[in-house]
Design a protein around this nucleic acid. Structure first.
Lengths: 236, 236
DNA sequence: GTCTATATACCGATAGAC
DNA sequence: GTCTATCGGTATATAGAC
């Protein structure tokens, strides 16, 4: 099947990308092996999946700092002592989750742009991919947005850099389209900010769209059409 | 001076609305008098201003739950014991702040729509007012967005209702414009959601716009132009 | 009305048995 | 590799002096 067409429906996207928690946790395990006390990969990955899922769920309900490690222990079925075999302290748990997510997003977005040739196609692919990605990793996107303000200076810097990076990916496409006379954009950076805000709404207000029965594909199409109007692209 | 023209620049807006912390806290005092131990209005209001400002500032940095009452006590210059004369527990403090803010916003937005006759003017006035309001009460807007997920079921319901209410104000104007053949809108509710997302970006990403030197008026104008394009309104 | 001192509970983190 | 028991510290909330 054609790869590009493939990306346009959500189910294929989900299957094509290495986005399952097991795959993500395997990577985490390999990278943090020296700081994780458990040595058997199979055991470690199984529990890391539990720990991260539980952390994201509990934090979504009450915030990372308000989530006690006792809560976490209960939710993921490991004792307090066992938890500390997977991270040296609560801060490190936060760090791993955020870092790994940022990387995955960066990699996925870059790939998708690289595979398109025309500015408008690049933009559409980027929009769809970002929205699809935030659907698959909804808990992570919500978490990283909500916890950003509570992080250490260093982690905050990384979070800001990540936000600006995504915005720059969008802005660069807008600049390209503007230069080639394809887009009617006065201020690509401001326009990119607005686009980013629309992308974010999918994971910040997911409850609203779910309640209304708006699918991720419908949302993506709607946003794309709105942006086409803003930048003066006429869809057939 | 003409009231409507008045509303179009930020400084006049700031002066015209009863938005100072003193005024807000006077209202709070009168409403919660029976649950506040301090009886002298002058003393109470002075300290309520300190308490709310400190709460909003500290929560913006680390979250409401992570803010200890010791932190708060230090920041606002009152002892732990004194604080408890103004609220019965931490939850009540949260409740007061959220309730009073919601009311103020509702009142201000309704007033501004009421004063305009034409759909497009209503929409422009609503956009500007929402953005201006979120600039004046930036701390509050940021706080209520970030803390929403950590609230009690009841408070969450109120927060959601408030979100949907603002969206409905926008949607109703879009419906009106559509019916009169003035706006080219296929789905007013979805469009209203997108508009809301753009409005929110001003207070959620304020650091970004401040750093780039974008003023509140510039942002408001930019968003208004983008929306005009989305709904097919041609500005002269 | 505001203070200091304190009660009680729970937090993150660790030690040591198994 | 996982458990239970427990450490010192800090949280909310209150009692009683001034």
């Amino acid at each position: 099947m054609n790869r590009t067409r493939n990306m346009y429906d959500f189910e294929s996207f989900k299957d094509s990308a290495a986005l399952s928690m097991e795959e993500i946790c395997s990577e985490i395990f390999r990278e943090y092996q020296h700081r994780i006390r458990i040595k058997k990969e199979k055991v470690a990955v199984k529990n890391l999946v539990k720990i991260f899922n539980a952390t994201l769920s509990l934090s979504a309900r009450k915030g990372f700092h308000a989530m006690s490690l006792r809560d976490l222990s209960k939710e993921c079925g490991l004792s307090m002592g066992a938890l500390y075999a997977y991270f040296t302290n609560k801060e490190m748990l936060l760090e791993i989750i955020l870092l790994q997510g940022r990387r995955l997003i960066k990699k996925t977005l870059e790939e998708v742009i690289f595979n398109e040739k025309f500015a408008w196609h690049k933009l559409v692919a980027l929009l769809r991919t970002h929205i699809f990605l935030s659907e698959v990793l909804h808990k992570w996107f919500f978490f990283s947005f909500m916890e950003a303000k509570n992080l250490s200076k260093e982690e905050q810097k990384a979070a800001i850099a990540s936000e600006l990076y995504t915005e720059k990916l969008i802005a660069d496409i807008l600049f390209e389209g503007k230069d080639k006379g394809l887009f009617a954009v006065e201020d690509p950076i401001m326009t990119a900010s607005l686009i980013k805000a629309m992308l974010q709404d999918w994971y910040l207000k997911r409850w609203k769209y779910k309640k209304r029965g708006i699918s991720v594909e419908e949302y993506s199409d709607f946003v794309t059409k709105a942006i086409a109007k803003i930048i003066g692209v006429h869809l057939q």
